[in-house]
């Protein structure tokens, strides 16, 4: 089924929870109310005609534009013609890319969540594949997935401070050494 038709189906069931459909001409991405993510996901998974049994990708993102005085950014003159990505309040978000092996169609949706208190319902009960992906998004963006059975860091050390893929993350000068390491060093 066409992604726009699927978005219309979701709209029919969830009404206002489907806020918009981004880039409908290229690769449509439905924007969903964050509280409704798990319900929409279950609907997409369990409705016979949709049957999205495969979560291809789950990725966090940050809509904050990169700092203009950041040394890695190109100069202001070069960027003069570039449009501003998002004029509204920057948020964190999660994008879900789905595929159905029985129906052979794909669908994408995303949800935005505030930067100071990012919460999104977990979809691990619907797709076990989400387990590690959600842990990664928690690790690197600090998004809390409510209902995740084992939400802890996956790539970074347990005692790491901060969430590096946020655009306002400041690189640390030193790594906080665990107590055991300090003791070993003193023993020498």
């Amino acid at each position: 089924m066409d992604a726009l038709a699927i978005a219309t189906m979701v709209k029919g069931v969830f009404g206002g929870a489907l806020l918009a459909v981004d880039q409908p001409d290229v690769e449509p991405v439905a924007v969903i109310e964050p509280e409704k993510v798990a319900e929409v996901a279950r609907f997409l998974r369990e409705t016979p005609g949709l049957a999205f049994d495969y979560l291809m990708c789950l990725s966090g993102f940050d809509t904050m534009p990169a700092e203009e005085d950041h040394p890695a950014r190109s100069t202001a003159a070069e960027d003069a013609g570039a449009p501003v990505a998002d004029s509204t309040e920057p948020t964190l978000g999660v994008a879900y890319h789905l595929f159905s092996y029985s129906q052979r169609h794909r669908f994408a949706f995303k949800a935005h969540t505030p930067r100071n208190n990012p919460h999104i319902p977990s979809v691990t009960q619907i797709w076990p594949a989400a387990d590690w992906h959600e842990r990664e998004a928690f690790d690197l963006f600090g998004i809390i997935f409510d209902g995740h059975p084992d939400l802890r860091r996956i790539l970074l050390p347990e005692d790491w401070v901060g969430h590096p893929l946020r655009k306002d993350y400041a690189a640390q000068e030193s790594y906080r050494i665990g107590d055991a390491c300090v003791q070993i060093a003193r023993g020498w």
Binding site: C57, G60, D79, A85
Partner: peptide
């Protein structure tokens, strides 16, 4: 893409 020469997000699945 935010329209600039550098991507705003690159996620590798």
């Amino acid at each position: 893409s935010d329209g600039s020469t550098k991507p705003s997000r690159v996620k590798v699945r």
